[in-house]
């Protein structure tokens, strides 16, 4: 029941994305441009290294995840701005079905776009450098996991800020601010560390191999996703959404 309701909500969200620029044609054009960037332009620049280096797949997953930010900012704030939220809340859908359905749409969008971009990228590289082959299995699995968890974390944050935002623009601004707050410790953290800590921390990170870094990043994304989604669930109250 919950799964069916989530899929109903997600299906509508995805349908709306395709026509959000006014028509299906412009929606498809938008998708095509994204695919050309991550599936043709970048791979052509990198050549065969796009297949062998994990950077190629990380870049492939990163852009769709960022694009899903716009989609998720549109969820509750967009429904409120376009006066569809109250009617939706007056329907039989449960709080969870609405919340998870919207998150599902953003995750499906990001992961599907990343996967399609990866496949197109592989095809592009092989056309440019025949025999370049396919991505190593652990890279493609890593990309899918990173894409999935990243999209979940972005969606969780997006829903959280979108729940109370009056407009899509306001939701997007708050999301951007949220991202900045999340990134600041990573950028400024090393510089702000006491001198005595810098060397041991550097030694710790330089001692990690690629798998350990990937697992650490996945755990961090998982924790962030769980935190944001948990907060969004706690914040989702029909009466407060209506009273504003």
């Amino acid at each position: 029941m919950l799964l069916y309701d989530m899929m109903t909500v997600a299906r509508k969200e995805l349908k709306e994305i395709m026509v959000q620029r006014g028509s299906l044609r412009s929606g498809l054009t938008n998708l095509l441009v994204t695919m050309l960037v991550i599936g043709v332009l970048f791979p052509l620049q990198w050549g065969a290294e796009w297949i062998t280096s994990p950077v190629g797949l990380i870049s492939t997953a990163w852009l769709p995840m960022m694009l899903s930010m716009g989609l998720i900012a549109d969820t509750f704030a967009g429904e409120r701005e376009r006066h569809t939220l109250e009617t939706l809340l007056a329907s039989r859908l449960s709080d969870r079905a609405i919340l998870f359905g919207k998150i599902l749409a953003a995750v499906v969008y990001a992961v599907a776009l990343a996967l399609a971009g990866a496949l197109l990228g592989a095809a592009t590289v092989n056309m440019q450098s025949p025999g370049a082959g396919f991505y190593p299995a652990q890279n493609i699995v890593g990309m899918l996991v990173f894409s999935l968890l990243g999209a979940l974390a972005v969606s969780g944050l997006g829903v959280l800020v979108s729940l109370r935002a009056e407009t899509v623009r306001q939701a997007y601004q708050r999301m951007s601010l949220g991202f900045l707050i999340l990134w600041l410790p990573l950028i400024l953290g090393p510089q702000l560390l006491p001198e005595a800590w810098k060397a041991p921390v550097l030694r710790f990170f330089s001692g990690l191999d690629g798998t350990q870094i990937a697992v650490g990043a996945a755990v961090l994304l998982l924790v962030l996703a769980a935190l944001f989604i948990g907060l969004a669930m706690a914040r989702f109250q029909r009466s407060r959404l209506i009273e504003g």
Binding site: K12, E16, T87, A90
Partner: peptide
């Protein structure tokens, strides 16, 4: 319920709007 606002998804077709609520129910 038909509330103060029509609550229609204006970027979707009439059929899509009803289909969505048909699925919801």
């Amino acid at each position: 319920a038909l509330l103060e606002q029509t609550g229609l998804y204006e970027r979707l077709s009439a059929e899509d709007n009803l289909d969505y609520y048909g699925r919801i129910y």
